[in-house]
Design a binder for these strands. Structure first.
Length: 602
RNA sequence: GGAGCCGUGGUGCAGCCGGUUUAACACGCCAGCCUGUCAAGCUGGAGAUCGCGGGUUCGAGUCCCGUCGGCUCCGCCA
C-alpha cells in the first residue's frame, strides 16, 4: 500500500494544484465510458474529482479502467490538469480540474450495492439501516457525522476553557426507583443481582460536587427502556454538566454562550442573548405547552369569561364546572370551504378534543354552526378578544383548563406548520423556568417529580412543601429551541433534611430512600456545596444544527422504532450456557405458549 | 399496551371498485455502439412465485383475518 499511498484528497483538489502528480485513493462513484474517453468520478470522504482515461495514452490502462464499476475501491496516479474551459463543471468544487490517469490499481472490488450512494435517491430506511456502511458513504451522512464531531469537539474546548473537568461515570450502576424503565445487566459474580445502565449521570455528578469537583461535564451516553419516537432513542447522548456554588443565572449565561458558539460555528446563525424566559405557567397559558415554539405568534386566547353566560350550553357548563374555553385565531383561514371546516373537529380530536367550535370571519359575516347561540354583541366581543379580522378563523375548545390548553397547543403547531408561519432559517431559544416541583399522576393519584427528585424548591415556596406541595415551584428550567426541549436542569438540594422531606412527599419511605439513595444522602452529610447543572440532548441538538430529517440520521448506528439494530440484529438470543452462567432463566418461550393458547381459545 | 400508514425485480414506484395484457415506468445491472461527459447518450438484454401464512371467490398483487418488518402518533419517557 505504501506505493499507492494517497498524496491528495479528491475533494480538495483546486486549480492552484495543477501540474502536480497526485495519487488518489477512493471509491468509484460513477463512471462514464464514451468509447474513446472514459471518466471516473472518484469519491473519498472529502468529495468527488473527475479522473480521465484516454486510450491513446495507454491502451492497457484504458482497458483496465473499462472494468471499473461503482463502489470499486481504487488507487489512481495521474497528473492534475485544468479542464478545458467548456468542460468545467460548476456544480463540483473540483469542477475546474481533472486528473489524467497514468496508473491504476483496484484495491477491492464491490458487488452492485443494494442502495445507490446518492443524496438524491430516497431509499427505504430499513434498507439503509441494514446496509448502514453504504448509507453512511453518502455525502449528506458524512456531513452529519462531521457536524456531530464538531459539536463534541467545540463543546469540549469551550467547557475546558471555562474550567470544567470531563469525568466519566459508570455505565454499570444500580437501578433507582422512578423515572424511566432501566436497562438491566445481570451480574455473574452476584447471582440474582443486576446492574442498571444509567438513565443519566445525575447521582454521580452530584456526588462529584460533594467530592470537591467545582465544574464537571461529560458527553454522556444515557439509556432508557421506553418506547421510541422519532426524536427518542433508547440510548442517547447528553452534554451533561454540573457546577458547585452556582445559581441558575450562571448556568444560563454559560449555556447561552455555548449554544451561541455552536450555532455560529456550525450554521452561521447569530443568536441574540440573553435568551428570553417564560415561567412554566405563562408558557402553558400562552402556548399550551411547556416547550413553546415561539417562532410564530398565534397565541392561545381565553374566552371563558366571555362565553360563560351565552346560550351555548356546552361552554356554560364547562366554565361553570371550573374548565375553560380556549381558542386560537388562524389568520387567513376564514375562507375555508365547508369540507375544510368540517374536518376541523376531527383534527382537534387527534389532539384529544371532544369537540371543536369555530367561527369563520367571512365577507358575509360570521359563519359558524353555533352562531345562533350567541348575540351579535357576544360575537363582536369574541372577535375582539381573538384579535380576529375578516378572513380569519377562530377555533375554540371547551374542556378542563389544562386539557383545553394542551389541545389548542397542538392545533397551534399544526396551523403554524400548515400556514407556513415559521420563518426559514430562524431559531428561537427560550428558557422555561419555575417548573412546578411536583405534579399529580392522574392515574395513580400519587405525587411525582416534574423534573427529577433532586431539583430544589424555590426558597419562597418552601413554606408550602408540606401543606400544598403542588403549589411549590422548583428552581428547575428547560432550554427550549424551536419548540424542542433541548435541555433540562435545576439547582439541586444539597441538604439532607430537605432532600429527605422531598422523598417523603414523593412517597419514598425513609428505608427505601436510604436503600436506593443512601450514598447521596450520606454524602450530603459531609459538607455538600450548593450546586446545580443541566444536560442538553446532543442528538436533538445535532438534528437541528444539521437540519436532518430524523434523529436517526445523526446517529451512526441508530435503533428502529422497535428498538432493533438492523445492522447487527441486536437484540438477539443468547446461548443457554450464557444464561446459566448468569443464573437466568428466560420466560420468553413459556410466555409465548401461554399467549398462543389464549388466542386459540378465543 | 393502543391507533394509523407502508411492504410489488437490486432501488424508487404504477397497477383505482377482484378478471386487459406476458405486472407498467424510471434508476441501477449486463452487452454492444460512442473522443469531453459529469444524474452522459443511443440500441438491445436479464431480472418479480407482488413480505409471509391462512381465508373468501370460478378467479386475489387487488377483498378479509393473522403474522413479520419499517415509519408516525397516543400511552410511556423523573
Amino acid at each position: 500500500m505504501t506505493e499507492w499511498k494517497r498524496t491528495y484528497y479528491c475533494g480538495k483538489l483546486r486549480p492552484e494544484d495543477v501540474g502536480v502528480t497526485v495519487c488518489l485513493n477512493g471509491w468509484v462513484h460513477r463512471w462514464r465510458n464514451h468509447g474513446g474517453v472514459l471518466f471516473i468520478d472518484l469519491r473519498d470522504s472529502t468529495g468527488l474529482v473527475q479522473v480521465v482515461f484516454h486510450p491513446e495514452n495507454n491502451k492497457d490502462l484504458f482497458e483496465q479502467a473499462e472494468t471499473l464499476r461503482n463502489e470499486n475501491v481504487i488507487a489512481v496516479r495521474g497528473r492534475l490538469e485544468k479542464r478545458p474551459a467548456e468542460t468545467v463543471n460548476p456544480n463540483l468544487p473540483t469542477g475546474e480540474v481533472e486528473v489524467i490517469a497514468q496508473e491504476l490499481v483496484i484495491l477491492n472490488k464491490a458487488k452492485t450495492p443494494p442502495l445507490q450512494i446518492d443524496d438524491r435517491i430516497t431509499v427505504d430506511e430499513a434498507l439503509r439501516l441494514r446496509y448502514r456502511y453504504l448509507d453512511l458513504r453518502r455525502p449528506e451522512m458524512q456531513k452529519y457525522l462531521a457536524v456531530r464531531h464538531r459539536v463534541a469537539k467545540l463543546t469540549r474546548d469551550f467547557l475546558d476553557q471555562k474550567g470544567f473537568l470531563e469525568i466519566e461515570t459508570p455505565m454499570l450502576t444500580r437501578s433507582t426507583p422512578e423515572g424511566a424503565r432501566d436497562f438491566l445487566a445481570p451480574s455473574r459474580l452476584s447471582p440474582g443481582k443486576f446492574y442498571a445502565l444509567p438513565q443519566s449521570p445525575q447521582l454521580f455528578k452530584q456526588v462529584l460536587m460533594v467530592a470537591g469537583v467545582d465544574k464537571y461535564f461529560q458527553i454522556a451516553r444515557c439509556f432508557r427502556d421506553e418506547d421510541l419516537r422519532a426524536d427518542r432513542q433508547p440510548e442517547f447522548t447528553q452534554i451533561d454538566l454540573e457546577m458547585a456554588f452556582v445559581d441558575r443565572e450562571e448556568i444560563f449565561a454559560l449555556m447561552e454562550e455555548l449554544v451561541q458558539v455552536l450555532f455560529k460555528e456550525l450554521t452561521g446563525f447569530e443568536s441574540v442573548r440573553p435568551f428570553p424566559r417564560l415561567s412554566y405557567h405563562e408558557a402553558v397559558r400562552r402556548f399550551g405547552t411547556d416547550k413553546p415554539d415561539t417562532r410564530f405568534a398565534m397565541e392561545l386566547t381565553d374566552f371563558s369569561d366571555l362565553v360563560k353566560e351565552t346560550e351555548f350550553s356546552i361552554f356554560r357548563q364547562v366554565v361553570a364546572g371550573g374548565g375553560s374555553v380556549i381558542g386560537i385565531t388562524a389568520p387567513g383561514c376564514g375562507n375555508y370551504s365547508r369540507r375544510e371546516l368540517d374536518e376541523l373537529p376531527r383534527l382537534a380530536a387527534d389532539f384529544g378534543a371532544r369537540g371543536l367550535v369555530y367561527f369563520a370571519l367571512t365577507g358575509e359575516g360570521i359563519k359558524s354552526p353555533v352562531a345562533k347561540f350567541f348575540t351579535p354583541g357576544q360575537l363582536t366581543a369574541i372577535c375582539e378578544r381573538a384579535q380576529a379580522r375578516e378572513g380569519d378563523l377562530i377555533m375554540m375548545v371547551a374542556d378542563e383548563t389544562e386539557k383545553a390548553r394542551e389541545i389548542l397547543g397542538g392545533l397551534r403547531l399544526e396551523f403554524g406548520r400548515r400556514l407556513q408561519l415559521i420563518p426559514e432559517g430562524r431559531h428561537d431559544f427560550l428558557w422555561v423556568i419555575d417548573f412546578p416541583l411536583f405534579e399529580l399522576n392522574k392515574e395513580t393519584r400519587r405525587i411525582e417529580s416534574m423534573h427529577n427528585p433532586f431539583a430544589a424548591p424555590l426558597p419562597e415556596d418552601r413554606a408550602f412543601l408540606e401543606s400544598e406541595p403542588l403549589r411549590v415551584r422548583g428552581d428547575a428550567y428547560d432550554l427550549v429551541l424551536d419548540g424542542v426541549e433541548l435541555g433540562s436542569g435545576s439547582i439541586r438540594m444539597h441538604q439532607r433534611e430537605l432532600q429527605e422531606k422531598v422523598f417523603a412527599i414523593l412517597g419514598i419511605s425513609p428505608e427505601e430512600a436510604r436503600e436506593k439513595f443512601g450514598f447521596l444522602l450520606n454524602a450530603f452529610d459531609y459538607g455538600a456545596p450548593p450546586h446545580g447543572g443541566i444536560a442538553l440532548g446532543m442528538d436533538r441538538l445535532v438534528t437541528i444544527l444539521t437540519g436532518a430529517e430524523s434523529m436517526r440520521d445523526v446517529i451512526a448506528f441508530p435503533k428502529t422504532a422497535a428498538g432493533a439494530c438492523l445492522l447487527t440484529g441486536a437484540p438477539a438470543e443468547v446461548e443457554p450456557a450464557q444464561l446459566q452462567e448468569l443464573s437466568l432463566v428466560s420466560l420468553a418461550d413459556r410466555d409465548l405458549i401461554v399467549v398462543k393458547k389464549r388466542k386459540n381459545e378465543t
